[in-house]
Amino acid sequence: MVTLTQYLILSGILFSIGLVGVIVRRDIIVIFMCLEMMLSAANLSLVAFSRAQGQNGLPNYDGQVMSLFIITIAAAEVAIGLALIVALYRAKRTINTKDLDTLKD
């Protein structure tokens, strides 16, 4: 029987890989993808807790509804974020984070 611990560890591994990606990559689109991966890992742990906290033979649906709303907000975030990236590309002609240092000066 797979226990809650294993689901949480899987979710933690996926979140950590996403974190590595956010730090390592220079391409803003891939950074954004890694952010989505971190959100999806959090969703997985919420669903696992929803199952573990279940009573009377059903999962506790509060956790699943919460992850449903996280997916909704993530979709909204993707729309806004990609619009920002397109606007950025129009202004700067680049999406490499190395070249985006205007605020440094």
């Binding site: 797979v2 809650l4 573990a52 279940g54 009573q55």
Partner: peptide, 10 residues
């Protein structure tokens, strides 16, 4: 809370 309870719809 580690062991997942069985799903039992009835």
């Amino acid at each position: 809370i580690i062991n997942l309870p069985e799903i039992n719809p009835q």
